[in-house]
């Protein structure tokens, strides 16, 4: 079911503070029919609405088979800062799901390299959950997560847990190390050489700051990864999510409908170009 133009009401049934500015909501639609029929694909997003504040596009972090929808939100703008103050039991509006998700039907049987940077890891976390729950479907899995400061790393427990699974490699990097940082200090691209898989066959999915994705994509191709094996999740301003408002245009693409997930060849002509 797609809630495209008028929001549906959803209740916050759980709230987890992930870091000083990041929180995760578990949501339940108030209308049981909507709750039962709502379905999405990893990599898609919803427009979350707070009365009086407005709407924001937020990617979905839960697994499609989970009973409830989950969103991880960073309080950075006017709407998300207001949302950060809301408690369990309060209600919001939800429109969605929108956009094209990750190409999971093409991924089965392949090794998976998942690269995220900064705090933009939410779109990819849905894939990590998806892959971990269907571990037998995939070959090796490597997760590379980079953050600016060690304190920015959320879901430490998850990473530790995933690293214990067979054929799962977790590589973490921070530009600035903090106390007890036992992983790499530096950039995500420094870690690409440590990935234990055939990069000419693996499929790569990434999201995060564009300079990180650009550098990683270029480095991966030098390591033998074919350009059409690389998928990225892009972000731009979104107001309508239905392809009409024009804000998310990225070259000829409307990210809300043609993305947010793109194969690298589709956007290579503009990735990293200032002003696009």
């Amino acid at each position: 079911m797609l809630i495209s133009q008028i929001p549906q009401t959803a209740r916050i049934i759980e709230r987890v503070q992930e870091s000083p500015t990041i929180f995760t909501w578990t949501l339940e639609f108030v209308d049981p029919d909507v709750q039962a029929s709502y379905a999405f694909r990893p990599g898609q997003f919803n427009m979350l609405y707070l009365p009086g504040a407005g709407e924001v596009p937020i990617s979905i972090v839960s697994d499609p088979r989970d009973p409830h929808l989950r969103h991880t939100i960073r309080a950075v703008g006017r709407v998300t800062k207001a949302m950060a103050k809301m408690d369990v039991g309060e209600v919001i509006g939800v429109r969605g799901p929108f956009g094209r998700g990750w190409p999971l039907e093409q991924v089965a049987g392949h090794d998976l390299l998942l690269i995220t940077g900064g705090l933009g890891c939410a779109p990819l976390v849905s894939v990590i959950h998806y892959a971990m729950k269907r571990r037998e479907t995939f070959g090796r899995i490597a997760i590379i997560q980079g953050v600016k400061h060690a304190d920015d790393l959320i879901w430490r427990d998850h990473y530790a847990e995933w690293a214990q699974l067979p054929d799962v490699q977790v590589l973490l990097a921070a530009d600035v190390a903090g106390k007890q940082w036992r992983w790499h200090v530096g950039l995500v691209t420094d870690l690409l050489g440590q990935v234990r898989m055939d990069l000419d066959k693996a499929l790569v999915m990434m999201c995060g700051p564009e300079p990180m994705m650009l550098a990683s994509a270029s480095h991966l191709q030098q390591l033998g990864c074919p350009v059409d094996h690389i998928w990225l999740s892009m972000e731009r301003n979104m107001q309508c999510a239905t392809g009409h408002c024009g804000h998310c245009q990225y070259g000829p693409d409307f990210i809300c409908q043609d993305g947010p997930v793109f194969p690298l060849p589709a956007i290579q002509d503009r990735l990293g170009v200032k002003g696009y």
Partner: peptide, 17 residues
Amino acid sequence: CFCHSQHDQITADPDVF
């Protein structure tokens, strides 16, 4: 040109936007 923004606006009723 088709670009437009969307925002909430208060009404005379403080609980309606």
